[in-house]
Every structure is written in structure tokens, then in C-alpha cells.
């Protein structure tokens, strides 16, 4: 499913909002989540999962092809952890 399909499905279910407005709202939702992550704020969506940003220190790595040592600068990485309900709903064993 893509974002446009998501917008279509949401607007079909929430009849009081037009499809055009739904598209704007879906963008506001993800943009506000992006803004929080840029502030390094943790996001927790109950029943779905949580997002958090971790800081990775700079380290030395190697080009695996040439063996040349390269400096890998420090960076921020994003992690997602599925919540308990989501884990259970996704797992095949529960389906049968």
C-alpha cells in the first residue's frame, strides 16, 4: 500500500472529510512525526509501535573491496519497534 492508496481508503471511511483535505491531513500527520524525530523526540503510537532516534559515534570503517580505511562520520539513525498488539496481529501463527 502506498500513501495515495492510504489517502483513498481513509477518505472512503471518513465521509465527512473530502479526499483533498484527507491528503493534506495525512501529510500533516507524517510531517509532524518527522519534525518530532528531527527534535530527537521519541514517538509512541499505542497499539502500533514506537520510533526513536539514536546517535551513532564516528568510527573507522574499511572499504570492503579495497581495504582502505575510511572515516565514517557520526550520524543519527532511526529505529522502529513494533508494539505488542502489532506484533501479534502481524505474526502468521495467530492467523491459523
Amino acid at each position: 500500500m502506498t500513501k495515495s492508496k492510504l489517502v483513498k481508503m481513509v477518505s472512503e471511511r471518513v465521509s465527512e472529510i473530502t479526499k483533498k483535505d484527507t491528503k493534506v491531513i495525512v501529510d500533516v500527520i507524517f510531517n509532524s512525526m518527522i519534525d518530532a524525530l528531527i527534535r530527537e523526540e521519541r514517538i509512541e503510537i499505542r497499539g502500533f509501535g514506537s520510533f526513536r532516534v539514536k546517535n551513532r559515534d564516528a568510527r573507522c570503517g574499511r572499504n570492503p573491496k579495497t581495504g582502505v580505511v575510511v572515516n565514517i562520520p557520526k550520524k543519527k539513525t532511526l529505529f522502529f519497534k513494533a508494539g505488542k498488539e502489532m506484533k501479534e496481529r502481524v505474526d502468521l501463527r495467530k492467523a491459523d
Binding site: 500500500m1 502506498t2 500513501k3 481513509v10 471511511r13 471518513v14 502489532m86 496481529r89
Partner: peptide
């Protein structure tokens, strides 16, 4: 709207469909 967005994402994942949110 916010509840519906997350519920639809969860439903799709539950049925085994991957969800792609461009830009996210």
C-alpha cells in the same frame, strides 16, 4: 482521521501487505 490512518496501516500489515509512505 488520525485513528483511521493508523488503523488502516495496521489492517494492511495484518493481511501481509507492505506499507510504503513516500518521504517517510
Amino acid at each position: 482521521i488520525v485513528e483511521t490512518v493508523f488503523e488502516i496501516i495496521k489492517e494492511k500489515l495484518e493481511t501481509g501487505e507492505n506499507v510504503k509512505i513516500s518521504g517517510f
